[in-house]
Design a binder for these strands. Sequence first.
DNA 1: AACAGCATGTAACTTGTTACATGATTTA
DNA 2: TAAATCATGTAACAAGTTACATGCTGTT
Lengths: 201, 201
Amino acid sequence: VKEERPLPATAYAVLGLLSFGRELSGYDLKKWADHSLRYFYWSPAISNIYGELKRLEGLGYVVAREVAQDDLRNKRLFRITDAGSEALALWVHEAPVDPPVLKDHALLRVWLGHVSGPARLLELVAAEEAASQQMIDELRHNIDVSSQDVAMAYPALVENWCVGYQRARIEAFAELRNALEQQALEQQALEQQALEELPPS
Amino acid sequence: VKEERPLPATAYAVLGLLSFGRELSGYDLKKWADHSLRYFYWSPAISNIYGELKRLEGLGYVVAREVAQDDLRNKRLFRITDAGSEALALWVHEAPVDPPVLKDHALLRVWLGHVSGPARLLELVAAEEAASQQMIDELRHNIDVSSQDVAMAYPALVENWCVGYQRARIEAFAELRNALEQQALEQQALEQQALEELPPS
DNA sequence: AACAGCATGTAACTTGTTACATGATTTA
DNA sequence: TAAATCATGTAACAAGTTACATGCTGTT
């Protein structure tokens, strides 16, 4: 049980999912991450979660209870230990907080607008606006669920944050769309002009 | 020159930096990524950039020109080729756009608020607001530079998007801060109550 | 009959990071 | 004189993904 270098944040994310006191399987954790962590952090691949659970078990931060299934394999339900809770609390209090990362693949294409021109970008931007709107709908549903449960007060606050964030994202894209439409019109005007200067054959 | 599976987005990000037509060294690319891509995408490690340049060179998407230095080593300035421009355009037009990822380490801690309580979270939130404000200042400076150059019209649009995004982030955090302050007061009230029920020794 | 959900885990692989080696010039 | 900036690249490592193996149950 040597604690050389700090665990990756993913380990604490998994431990954090278990810190709400429920006994959960790896599969459960992945599902939960998909509708919670995903919106503001990241949802690790299922194989990654199994890997982290193994590591956390080795450190004594979680324990598994074997549950028989009709399958050959058993189901394993994980629970956080006192040592795990302590390690998590220490991490939240002491570990340096990495700067937030936004990795927006659509914006990367907008940044490279000179390669494709405004038409393609308008497609992309519209798709992103729709995607954000869908996220808001999902989040609102999650908030309905979270506000039923007092233990989910902090997750509910974060879900609210996420709605505000997605709303702002849509607004920022709408503004960008205006600028692009402007540019598309100017480009059309230039093409029109070129056509007039070169009379029809 | 086999093109089995798609290149990682990082390769196109590097190629994209070169698509503005300038001849740049690996070092230059890193610096530029640090004050452009970083705000909406990601700035790869310098060693990663050298690696991608090597790959792009192997594919014929970029060529290097050796420039003598007073050092033992030469400086290598990279330029995009026609094949590279074509590959980049194809990527922007055809490649599926991955969903945006927000990885916010501060919010992960807020989500785990039950582990630390509102006091620690208020610290974190204040720090994030300050960090966002600083980003806005940096972005405004970048916009001043970008708007000097017609070739930077699209990057300027994205920088504007980023300002809007950071402003919204601050607002969302301010709202969260209010909710947390509310919660901190309630917690203090509970402690006060506990003190009164247990008279001083 | 095919697919999706439940369920676990390993292995091969890719991606990207940090650390290292090397050394000149400029700034504090 | 210590540090930051300029400058390139490799090697060791960590982190995380996809693909695979296995098999039950319920839905389309």
